[in-house]
Design a protein around this nucleic acid. Structure first.
Length: 615
RNA sequence: GCCCCUAUAGUUCAAUGGAUAGAACACUAGCCUUCUAAGCUGGAUAUGUAGGUUCGAUUCCUACUAGGGGCACCA
């Protein structure tokens, strides 16, 4: 074994070590048994029992909805679907259900139920419920929203996965942001989560890069902005290769040599890799993104070969007679694809298949999420299909491609070549600068160190939120103006709401003892409808988290938080807590806004966004 | 050619098959000697086209139109 072979092995051992550490460090999610018994769920269950009684049949879970504003009532139940199941008239059933609820033992928390057509509208005993909601949140504190629905399960989340020698662009940011949010959300529902940065550190691109380096590279290029320099080399190669087909062949050959662990090339590869990862780390730090492992594709270079041999053994693929490439014929009606090139080197899909097997073996997950752009959908369908036949995936392990749309500029994909790509560094710098500019204007008295902190939180939050507030499957239109518009519909709106509450609490604290949140729970009271509306919104937070997890849609949380903040801001404009004379009422209002602040902070943190203490 | 995604207000986005389709931006009329106006309260404007399923369709199905993406030695 030569020296470089040792070096690659050494590198692999480092990865093994980090995987072992990660295995130890993986935190299980929520585990308290009663964390599923939220008020909202209880209410649904209780009403569900009456529905069963009324229908004389057990019909799964019911789900209360919020009726349109003009209807009135706190929650409503639609009975068309129930009626269909048991074949009765919906209006009759609605009346029956309303009757059972009205005469039942739920009197202590339900004021009345009314049948309106095929809907049952439920009006809660407001004071009673208001008290219960605030008590629940106060008791659980920062843990409000956690559940153990998925306790005992493990999820591996493959996200970010930047390519070595290419700066992380705005287009590539989505995987990082969505993946981090999903990891948080999964963990919140009880999953133990393994966050794996599947770094693109292998493949033909390295042949190209090395070719370019050998022909045009100079040592001083790597001094200041190495990743930029490497990217430039890569771009230059691609332009050159258009007219020089021989260069592309040579690049492929270089990669084949790299995969065979050619000593000279491994040294170069390792160097480029280290330089890039160091650069990425800066961005992760700013975004607050952390990984449990960063195994990377290179780790699977040899394992990929083993997988190919296994496939060959099972006759799932064949060697093409003419070219010697390894081909998998169409599975499930999908197009056929290659597992090995004719020069013997591995492909992305092959390495990914090996990675999948590795993940299943090492982490024993229930689910593996691939947070990768939608354009790779076919690739994943092909890989999953093969993985199923190979037995890597089965009823105990599910793999899901969490696809997402592209970032468009003027309706077109961002392109480095055409100069429409926006650098992440530039975006972050601009966003932070913009929020600082506004901050100076709004709050000139703030100390400069605080100003740095706050504008960082606000600027980065704006970028992250811009992505997570919309459904991930759609393309995102990038617009500088919108991105830097720090008003409604942005993270700032939520952060601002949070800060307002902090400000109230601070003022009350300064005012002394009598201003503090006080009073036993029985003393809870409210006066305005808006207060109750805020509380009702708070009540469904745990359910929103669950739905976001089940659908893999972080934007459910963003949408919810905006609705909550809107209600809070209305409340804020309607009543003044500090001026509230009645001690009991004032204490209750304090508890209400504390709960709002808690949920906003928690919700934003699930999205990977921080809140400032002031702004 | 085949496959996938998308089509909602002037713009950018929401809406487990349910009641009068919600926001934000922009436009516009108001609200700060009162807890931070990065806020609140009003106002006008929208489901690509044609069918189908359903008591009920923005949502499901079919066709069409438009946009985006993908279809083996890239990732």
């Amino acid at each position: 074994m030569n020296k470089t072979q040792d070096e690659f092995d050494k590198y692999r051992k480092e990865v093994d070590l980090s995987v072992n550490n990660a295995l130890k460090g993986i935190k299980p999610g929520a585990s308290r048994a009663d964390f599923n018994d939220y008020l909202w769920k209880k209410l649904n269950n209780e009403i569900g029992k009456f529905v069963w009684e009324a229908l004389g049949a057990e019909i799964g879970q019911i789900e209360l909805a919020v009726p349109p504003a003009h209807i009135g009532g706190d929650f409503s139940l639609e009975v068309f679907s129930l009626a269909k199941k048991i074949g009765e008239n919906p209006n009759t059933i609605a009346k029956k259900i309303a009757g059972f609820i009205n005469e039942g033992e739920l009197k202590q928390c339900i004021e009345r139920a009314a049948a309106v057509g095929a809907f049952v509208n439920v009006e809660l005993k407001k004071r009673e419920f208001y008290r219960k909601i605030l008590a629940e949140i106060e008791e659980l504190g920062a843990r409000y929203g956690e559940s153990n629905v998925n306790a005992g399960k493990t999820a591996v989340i493959d996200f970010s996965a930047p390519n070595i020698a290419k700066p992380i662009g705005v287009g590539h940011l989505r995987s990082t942001i969505i993946g981090q949010a999903l990891a948080n959300i999964y963990n919140e529902t009880g999953y133990a989560v393994v966050k794996d940065n599947h770094v693109g550190d292998w493949g033909t691109q390295f042949g190209k890069l090395i070719w370019a380096w050998q022909h045009w590279g100079k040592e001083e290029m790597l001094k200041d902005h190495p990743v930029e320099a490497l990217k430039d080399l890569y771009v230059k190669f691609n332009a050159y290769a258009k007219d020089h087909l021989k260069a592309a062949d040579e690049a492929r050959e270089l990669f084949a040599r790299l995969e065979a662990k050619d000593p000279e090339l491994v040294v170069l590869w390792k160097r480029f890799r280290d330089l890039s990862l160091k650069d990425f780390q800066k961005i992760y730090l700013q975004l607050g993104v952390e990984f449990d492992t960063a195994i990377g594709e290179s780790y699977f270079s040899d394992r990929a070969n083993e997988v190919v041999e296994l496939c060959l053994g099972k006759k799932l693929c064949q060697k093409d007679v003419a070219s010697e490439a390894i081909i998998v014929d169409g599975l499930d009606g999908l197009p056929s694809f290659l597992l090995r090139k004719q020069d013997g080197s591995s492909l992305y899909l092959t390495r990914d298949l090996a990675a999948l097997k590795f993940r299943v073996d090492v982490f024993d997950p229930d689910v593996i999420l691939y947070v990768v752009g939608s354009e790779q959908e076919l690739n994943f369908r092909q890989m999953f299909a093969l993985a199923e036949i190979m037995g890597y995936l089965n009823e105990n392990v599910v793999a899901r491609h969490i696809g997402f749309g592209m970032v468009l500029v003027d309706g077109k994909k961002m392109s480095t070549r055409e100069g429409t790509a926006v650098g992440l560094e530039e975006l972050m710098t601009q966003a932070i600068a913009k929020s600082k500019e506004i901050l100076i204007q709004k709050n000139p008295a703030m100390e400069s160190s605080d100003m740095e902190t706050v504008s960082g939180i606000v600027g980065i939050g704006a970028i992250v939120y811009n992505d997570l507030r919309q459904s991930r499957t759609n393309n995102i239109t990038f617009d500088w103006k919108r991105m830097l518009d720090l008003e409604g519909g942005s993270a700032v709106y939520l952060q601002y709401s949070y800060v307002r509450i902090q400000s109230i609490l601070k003022k009350l604290n300064e005012a002394g003892g009598e201003g503090g949140a006080g009073g036993p729970r029985s003393e809870i009271a409210f006066e305005n409808q808006i207060e109750f509306d805020v509380a009702k919104k708070l009540m469904i937070f745990p359910d929103i988290i669950l739905k976001a997890q089940q659908a893999d849609y972080p934007h459910y949380i963003a949408v919810y938080l905006e609705e909550l903040a809107t209600l809070f801001n209305s409340f804020y404009n309607e009543v003044s807590i500090i001026k509230t004379e009645d001690q009991k009422l004032r204490g209750s209002r304090i508890k209400l806004v504390e709960a709002v602040a808690l949920v906003i902070k928690k919700g934003l943190s699930l999205l990977g966004i921080k809140v400032p203490g002031k702004m």
